[in-house]
Amino acid sequence: MIKCLNLKKIYPLKSALGYAALKGINIEIRKGEFAAVCGPSGCGKSTLLNILGFLDIPTEGKYFFMGEDASSFSDSKRSFLRRKKAGFVFQSFNLLPKLSVIENAMLPLLYLGVSRKDAHKKAYSLLERVGLSSKSENDIMELSGGERQRVGLARALSNDPEILLADEPTGNLDSENSLQVLTLLTEINKERKMTVIMVTHDMKLAAKAERIIKIKDGEIQE
């Protein structure tokens, strides 16, 4: 489903050469796979995730998503793919504090043009799945970190994405909550045959995934 050919990302610097975050990545990820991308901080794993999630474009190389070359897509095409095919889970949750729990969870659906009523129904069932249906009308500020990340997960799942991209989903959580979120991720991967790509620097967590992709200094060391 995902195929990267010699993917490079070079950030321009004031000095002549620029900083190479990715130095030619070649990976293939099949549908339904649960892959953990790990490596020390600054190795380029987040950059890779951003490219895989259509947030960023590579400087060089090709990124094939379901057979299409996504590395040359326009901003609006990539926005469409994010809206339709990808779900993001962030380290710092990135929930909107002005909205309630359920409103956060249904936001991607609203961007897809789904009616408020249908979006509400869908989001509620997802909140049930992550065990937060009783707090659906609460403010984000009233939730604990673990709960917030579960809302983030519900939000990422609301558009039934092809791939779920999690950037250090447990980075801000204690071990108990980390485990809970990770369990949810694996369950969802199994239940829905959903491709999950998780970035982490914690090898113990990565070990729970089917496949580990190690990155160091912008290169794969599988």
Partner: peptide
């Protein structure tokens, strides 16, 4: 931040 989040979950320009 909010703009970034909205863009990440699929809002276009």
């Amino acid at each position: 931040k909010e703009i970034g989040v909205r863009r990440a979950i699929g809002a276009d320009k």
